[in-house]
Simulated assay, not measured.
Amino acid sequence: MPITESGKDWQKRNRGKAAQYVAKYAQSRTKVSFYLEDWITKEIAQVKAPEQTYGNWIRLHIEEWARTRQSTDVAPENK
């Protein structure tokens, strides 16, 4: 989701709090960067919302895939 002007202003006024939030958020996550070929971004652009970033679209789909995989995997002791 794009940051609003008021959100940018808040971050400028509260640099310390904003930095703490970013650090806490990043603490439990892994940052990943990669490049997509043009044909892939064209395919994604046809189905994602115009205001949605490619990274956010991909993250949401990967999270959904992981949730589905978790729900279909049965722990060995539960078989």
Rank of each mutant, 00 (worst) to 15 (best):
Lys17Gln: 06
Lys8Ala: 02
Pro76Trp: 12
Glu64Pro: 06
Asn14Thr: 05
Lys12Asn: 04
Met1Trp: 15
His61Glu: 08
Gln27Lys: 11
Gly16Phe: 10
Gln70Leu: 09
Ala23Trp: 03
Gln20Met: 14
Asp9Lys: 03
Lys48Arg: 14
Ala75Ser: 01
Glu51Tyr: 06
Lys31Ile: 09
Ile44Met: 08
Gly55Thr: 15
Arg67Phe: 10
Gln46Glu: 13
Asp9Gln: 00
Ala75Thr: 05
Trp65Cys: 09
Val22Ile: 13
Arg67Leu: 09
Gly55Leu: 07
Pro76Asp: 11
Leu36Pro: 03
Pro50Thr: 03
Lys17Ile: 01
His61Val: 00
Trp57Gly: 00
Ile62Val: 14
Glu5Leu: 00
Asp73Lys: 06
Gln46Met: 10
Lys17Tyr: 01
Arg29Ser: 15
Lys31Thr: 04
Lys24Phe: 07
Arg59Glu: 10
Ile3Phe: 02
Ala49Asn: 01
Thr30Glu: 12
Val22Ala: 08
Arg15Glu: 11
Val74Gln: 06
Glu77Val: 10
Ile58Val: 13
Asp38Thr: 11
Ser33Met: 03
Ala75Tyr: 08
Lys12Leu: 11
Ala23Asn: 12
Tyr35Phe: 15
Arg15Cys: 00
Thr41Val: 04
Asn14Gly: 05
His61Met: 11
Gly16Lys: 13
Gly55Asp: 08
Lys12Ile: 02
Ala49Glu: 01
Lys42Met: 07
Ala26Arg: 13
Glu37Tyr: 12
Gly55Trp: 02
Trp65Met: 10
Arg15His: 01
Gln27Phe: 08
Ile40Lys: 14
Lys17Phe: 04
Ile62Gln: 07
Lys12His: 00
Phe34Val: 07
Lys8Tyr: 09
Ser71Ala: 13
Ile62Tyr: 08
Lys31Pro: 03
Thr72Tyr: 06
Leu60Asn: 04
Val47Arg: 14
Trp39Arg: 08
Glu64Gly: 12
Val74Tyr: 10
Gln52Met: 06
Lys17Met: 01
Pro50Ser: 15
Val32Gly: 01
Lys42His: 13
Ile40Met: 14
Met1Phe: 12
Ser71Lys: 14
Val47Tyr: 15
Lys42Gln: 12
Trp10Leu: 05
Ile3His: 02
Thr4Val: 02
Trp57Arg: 08
Lys17Ala: 07
Gln46Asn: 14
Pro50Asp: 07
Glu64Leu: 09
Asp73Ser: 13
Ser71Thr: 05
His61Asp: 10
Ile44Ala: 09
Asn56Met: 05
Ala18Trp: 05
Arg15Lys: 13
Trp39Met: 12
Ala45Tyr: 00
Asn14Val: 00
Asn56Ser: 10
Thr53Gln: 02
Gln70Gly: 04
Pro2Phe: 00
Ser6Asp: 02
Glu5Asp: 11
Thr41Met: 01
Lys42Asp: 14
Ala18Glu: 09
Pro50His: 05
Asp73Arg: 15
Ser28Arg: 15
Ala49Val: 06
Asn78Pro: 03
Val22Lys: 14
Glu37Pro: 14
Lys8Phe: 09
Gly7Ala: 00
Arg69Thr: 06
Gln27Trp: 04
Asp38Asn: 03
Asn14Gln: 00
His61Gln: 13
Thr4Lys: 00
